[in-house]
Structure formats: structure tokens, C-alpha cells
């Protein structure tokens, strides 16, 4: 069941950025002394004249990105997800979101799968912060191929975008690339009747694993890759609620401000059905990535367990 590991999504981001740089001389890139980790180094090596390492100064980085965008550039700015979102937040609010500047923030090392560095370097709340800014497109790609597609889509989209990518090698979900990628359009990876598993980032592969486990238990699960958290694909969410009658949302983020809460709002408004959530409810800790994912419940097993419970409780309430 274990899917083969592909490149890390941050690696795909760095490569995609360099590709875009070759095609579009208007793209500029900023980093805050993490170019070797965010992988903006590839762009920096090829296009030193369009790359600005501002040092360890994330607020300044976002402000400078806003200025570059205001002067007509497509500005990508990167740091770890927590640093760029937390330290750059007021600048993201006024100079980017409220001013509708064409800035693309790519936060790397999102989630707890960064492992040993611990909480201070982990993105627990980056997606929530991005979602709290009106006008921001927010994407969390599942693997390398989808990251390339998302970065390309971000460059084409006019307006603020946040993309969260991760540190570890990501299981391959899209073996043949992600050619049909569209901002705001969920991808159904597997159809099913009894329950829908909605996930993004690393949790997409986990949801696919869960669907296979559920099949063993005679439960047919639909899997939706909700790579775009905003604008949310409400049509796909409503359809899932109507056609499968139960939804489990899984994400590597605090549940109360991420994908789960966005899906729950849509479900409550469009077609209320029982829901369960798999994600973070507290700060994590240092440890090996896999061990942390298990300890904090971010596994296919846990998604399957929640799905099974929700399906069984529905069956018993019908009886």
C-alpha cells in the first residue's frame, strides 16, 4: 500500500520557479536566508539579478515583495511557512491582501512532518493565517507534480496567492503529472458511495491508503484532493455530501482554522451530513517525522477509523 516516495514538494517548487524564470523575465524571487531550504536557490543561481535574499527579515521581505509587485513584477517570496506567515502577517494584510498586490507567498516546511526541529519551525497555523486574509488564493499541493502545476497556476493568476509545501519527500499521487490542475477545482482520485475523504498535502496519499483499507471493510470511499482551500470547490463538496452522506476531512494543520473548518462551513450551508476531522488540535513536538505523524493521528489508519465509525453510526441510526 505504501506509495513510492517522490521529490519533496519544496524541491518541486524550487525547480518550477527556475523553469518559470526562464519563460517569464517578469518573475522576481525573494528569500529570507533560507534559500537552501526553500529551494529558491535554483532560481537564485540562474537569475541572480532577479533574486533578493533580504537576510533574516521576513516582514521586510514581504514589504519589498509588495513594492516589486506594485511596480509590475510577479513577486514570489519564500521562507518557512511559519516565519513568512507569522512575521510577515501585517505586511501581508495591508501591503498585499488589502492592496491586492500580485505577490505569491510560498511557505515551505509546512506542518509537523519537518520532524526534529520542533514546534518553533513547524507550520501549524500558516494556512489559517492565509485564509484569514480576504482575496488570498490558498493551495496545499499533494506531491511534486501537483506542486509544479500549482506554482505555474499561481504565476498566471493575478493577485495574492499562498502555497504551502513540505520538507520531506512526498508520496507520489500523480504519476503522470497533473495536467488538468485548476485553481479551485478539486480532483476526484477515487469514486465511492459510502463516505468521502477530503484531504490536501501529504494527507492525500494517506486518504488514498485509507480508502483501500476501507474497501477491505466493505466501505466504498470517495477521495477528493482539495488542493485549493480557497476558493473552495463547493460544488464538489456539496456533491460529496449528497452522494455519499458522510465526510471525513484530513489535513496537516490545526483543524479549527484550516481545510476542515472551510469544508464544514460549506457542508453546513449546502447539505449538512455527519462529518469527522483528522488533523492537529495542539502544538506538536520534536521527533522523527513518521513517528510524529503517527502520534498526532495524521495517518491513513486514523482516517479509515474515523470513516468507519461515521459510516457504522449512520447504519445503526437507520436501523
Amino acid at each position: 500500500m505504501a506509495r513510492p516516495l517522490g521529490e519533496a514538494t519544496r524541491e518541486a517548487y524550487g525547480k518550477a520557479l527556475a523553469e518559470l524564470g526562464r519563460e517569464n523575465p517578469n518573475i522576481v524571487v525573494l528569500d529570507g536566508d533560507l534559500s537552501k531550504s526553500t529551494m529558491t536557490k535554483y532560481f537564485a543561481q540562474e537569475f541572480p539579478g532577479r533574486f533578493f535574499n533580504v537576510g533574516i527579515a521576513e516582514a521586510n521581505m514581504v514589504g519589498v515583495a509588495a513594492g516589486l509587485a506594485a511596480a509590475g513584477k510577479v513577486a514570489f517570496a519564500s521562507s518557512f511557512a511559519c516565519f513568512v506567515m507569522c512575521k510577515g502577517f501585517d505586511q501581508l494584510r495591508l501591503a498585499v491582501a488589502y492592496s491586492d498586490n500580485n505577490v505569491k507567498i510560498v511557505g515551505t516546511h509546512g506542518g509537523i512532518s519537518i520532524g526534529e526541529d520542533g514546534v518553533s519551525q513547524m507550520g501549524h497555523e500558516d494556512i489559517g493565517l492565509a485564509l484569514s486574509l480576504p482575496g488570498f488564493v490558498v493551495m496545499v499541493p499533494a506531491d511534486g507534480a501537483q506542486t509544479r502545476a500549482a506554482v505555474r497556476a499561481a504565476a498566471e493568476h493575478i493577485g495574492p496567492v499562498y502555497i504551502r509545501v513540505g520538507r520531506p519527500k512526498a508520496p507520489i499521487v500523480y504519476e503522470n503529472g497533473c495536467p488538468d490542475f485548476q485553481i479551485g477545482k478539486a480532483i476526484m482520485l477515487r469514486d465511492g458511495r459510502d463516505v468521502t475523504l477530503i484531504a490536501n498535502g501529504l494527507m492525500v496519499a494517506a486518504a488514498l491508503d485509507a480508502a483501500e483499507m476501507l474497501e477491505q471493510d466493505g466501505v466504498s470511499a470517495r477521495v477528493l484532493d482539495m488542493h485549493t482551500v480557497r476558493p473552495l470547490d463547493e460544488e464538489a463538496v456539496e456533491k460529496a455530501a449528497r452522494e455519499t452522506g458522510a465526510i471525513v476531512v484530513a489535513e496537516e494543520h490545526l483543524l479549527h482554522t484550516g481545510l476542515a473548518s472551510q469544508v464544514a462551513m460549506a457542508v453546513a450551508r449546502l447539505h449538512p451530513v455527519p462529518m469527522r476531522y483528522v488533523g492537529l488540535t495542539q502544538y506538536a513536538e520534536s521527533g522523527a517525522p513518521d513517528a510524529l505523524m503517527r502520534k498526532y493521528g495524521l495517518t491513513g489508519e486514523n482516517i479509515a477509523r474515523e470513516a468507519l465509525e461515521i459510516v457504522r453510526s449512520r447504519a445503526s441510526s437507520v436501523v
Binding site: D117, G118, V119, S120, S286, G287, K295
Partner: peptide, 22 residues
């Protein structure tokens, strides 16, 4: 840096009373 220990990868006041600031 090991899981289930107070020895966090960066200083954490919550984990060790001798640490003054996270």
C-alpha cells in the same frame, strides 16, 4: 530531538523549567 522527551530541537519553556524563553 527525540519524540516524547523534553529535549526539544529548540528551547521550550513548557518542556524544561530551566529554559527561560521559547
Amino acid at each position: 530531538r527525540k519524540i516524547d522527551t523534553p529535549m526539544q530541537g529548540h528551547p521550550s519553556v513548557k518542556d524544561l523549567p530551566a529554559v527561560e524563553a521559547s
